[in-house]
């Protein structure tokens, strides 16, 4: 088998909570406590678990939004946890993140064109504005948006359209690894389905590797090749999607699957 694109070994991310002081102990929150997994080229691995299990911290640590306490994460042969911010910068194009609300961290006064052009210029992927516009138009169409929407502003779009634009902002950089953290959980049911289909289609067409972080077991089954189940900072079970959903081995995985409300399906 080929070498994995991303190989995470014994990753730990701890947070200290509360102030220490005379005769007071600082307590440590072990958000991620020694997890290991790998993602191959073109593969989708899901990280599934309940709130507070540490799954988002894994994604945030891998993109240097949090600092790892211990462990290694080999990406394309380099340990990305032990790079300075300056050394990590060129890798940002290769490792991109899709958030639950893509616009929460973006300037609402930028047009969609400005928003999508910014990373293109930062990473020097285009020479001038007309080249950028061409690329933006093509990417918007790829995510099912009208190219003309580049002249509009974030508030003019619905939640589903915003997420499509968020996905465009990631895909326009042709990354090698996408980390998607609850990308559809803020959307209505019918819009979730559209966006899940879109992510699956784009992943297949581009062959990008993906870490899909979600609490939604249905979405996880729809999108992934392999699944890692996380509980209290640790992975309790990792396996092929069908194995996890059909013959779960760990008691917690069984409890999760057993908790999903069943749709009544009767044949009249």
């Amino acid at each position: 088998m080929t070498r994995p694109l991303l190989e995470v070994r014994e990753l730990r991310t701890y947070f200290s909570i509360g102030r220490g002081g005379f005769m007071r102990r600082k307590s440590v929150l072990k958000a991620v406590d020694g997890i290991s997994f790998s993602i191959h080229e073109g593969e989708v691995l899901s990280l599934v678990g309940e709130s507070g299990c540490g799954k988002s911290t894994v994604g945030r640590t891998l993109t240097q939004l949090e600092t790892a306490t211990a462990g290694t994460a080999m990406f394309d042969g380099r340990d990305i946890l032990n790079l300075t911010h300056a050394e990590f910068r060129p890798l940002r194009r290769d490792i991109q993140m899709i958030f639950q609300d893509p616009f929460a961290s973006l300037n609402p006064r930028l047009s969609i064109e400005q928003m999508l052009a910014e990373p293109l210029f930062i990473h020097r992927l285009v020479r001038d504005r007309s080249e950028a516009r061409e690329r933006i138009a093509a990417t918007l169409e790829l995510v099912g948006m009208d190219a003309k929407s580049m002249n509009r502003y974030p508030h003019e779009f619905s939640g589903g359209q915003r997420q499509r634009i968020g996905i465009a902002r990631v895909m326009i950089l042709t990354p090698r690894l996408v980390i998607a953290d609850e990308p559809v959980s803020a959307l209505d049911v019918s819009i979730q389905a559209q966006v899940l289909n879109l992510i699956k289609q784009l992943q297949r067409d581009s062959g990008v590797s993906m870490l899909f972080i979600s609490h939604d077991l249905g979405a996880v089954r729809h999108i992934s090749d392999r699944v890692a189940v996380m509980y209290r900072g640790a992975l309790v079970e990792t396996g092929e999607k069908r194995q996890i959903f059909e013959t779960p081995r760990h008691a917690y995985t069984r409890k999760l699957l057993d908790s999903i409300p069943r749709l009544e399906k009767r044949i009249a």
Partner: peptide
């Protein structure tokens, strides 16, 4: 659930990814 009639109700159901079998594309 045995005799869904409105296209919207059917659409809602088709939008939910199943957990007990694999579906290639959701009927969004």
């Amino acid at each position: 659930f045995s005799n869904m009639s409105h296209p919207y109700t059917l659409g809602l159901l088709g939008s939910i990814p199943a957990t007990d079998h694999d579906v290639e594309w959701l009927d969004a």
